[in-house]
Design a binder for these strands. Structure first.
Lengths: 182, 182
DNA sequence: ATTGATTGTCAACAGTTGTTGGCCTACAGT
DNA sequence: ACTGTAGGCCAACAACTGTTGACAATCAAT
């Protein structure tokens, strides 16, 4: 067949995202990604240069915290939890980052960057407390990454079994406290 | 040199733990482990049979939650946090599990097992609420794994910078709530 | 119809991986 | 001194990895 280069590129990209999310950086081989995309491995190299660069392209994304801009202050905790849970389920993005961030230094760096650049400023704006925003953001990241880890990666049965509402019920007050305490 | 087989075996084991903790399952190669232990890669195979079995041996450990047996009920949260933090820092055990559990299915299974077998029963005993113990244990695991992830693996600067006391200050009430709420 | 560029295929490379079998060396019991 | 056993080392294997270069097929513009 014959496609435009941008088509093929995006086919490769989504295959790469799935593989990275499912297998992590090392086990997601270029050959397996190419096989999923039904494409020659050499094409992956042609369009992305190297595995590192392919990964960099696959791990780019936006957590869209701007959606929380006009939530009443006392409901921020629940809103944050719901927003995060949907981000976990929407795309493979967060799963890619978590699976790879643990063995790949570049991915860990990317993760730090995303949370520092996207979450901390939002929290500074929402709480009007810029001084403590990085710590609050870090605590919230830790809690939400922990839940994602338990639910989507390690698959702890009780966490998998919980509904979104139950999770909000448990986590909402925690996040609310991390946002406002002290 | 010449050693007893049990000596060499334990030398290999501790080298393996370090490598698995630092690099994860895939990147911790038998050759690199053998090099650390200053022995021939073939010896690893002789004594452990395969990489899988070496890993199984390296990932065996005890979270020692029994140490929390006689903590006053209202201080359980802080005690849990302190205990966990020390477990993270004491040996490489938790880091091994987390680094590998994310790419290796066997390790994920082992992790579920450890938390279900060691944490949940303890919580059932401590709270006198066996029905909700698995959920509470899972929530606590998620929070503490999240912190370990942010502090020791992803190295989020604000989390790395916090002292043990600060972490207890933030996390203690959360864990206390997961233990007693509802 | 002939170009030139773009998309795709194929085969091979050099390096690394887990794993294996043969061989050497030290030691204990005779 | 001789021998059996157990610890240690070396070289090689087959499979797999990322990556590369040469070559074929397809299209658009002249």
């Amino acid at each position: 067949m014959r496609r435009t280069s941008t088509e093929t590129k995006s086919i490769i990209l989504s295959a790469a995202r799935e593989r990275f999310a499912a297998d992590g950086y090392e086990r997601a081989t270029i050959r397996s990604i190419a096989a999923d995309a039904q494409i020659d491995p050499a094409m992956v190299m042609r369009y992305f240069g190297s595995k590192e660069k392919l990964f960099a392209a696959a791990a780019e994304f936006d957590l869209r915290f701007d959606a929380l801009a006009d939530v009443p202050r006392d409901q921020l905790g629940s809103a944050f939890v719901r927003h995060f849970l949907r981000q976990w389920e929407a795309g493979e993005a967060l799963q890619v980052l978590l699976r790879t961030g643990i063995t790949n230094d570049g991915a860990a760096e990317r993760m730090r960057e995303i949370f520092a650049r996207q979450l901390a400023p939002r929290i500074a704006a929402l709480t009007g407390d810029p001084a403590n925003a990085p710590v609050r953001a870090a605590m919230i990241s830790a809690q939400m990454l922990g839940i994602g880890l338990a639910r989507y990666i390690l698959r702890f049965p009780p966490v998998v079994a919980m509904s979104e509402d139950e999770l909000v019920h448990w986590l909402g007050p925690t996040i609310q406290r991390y946002l406002t305490a002290d």
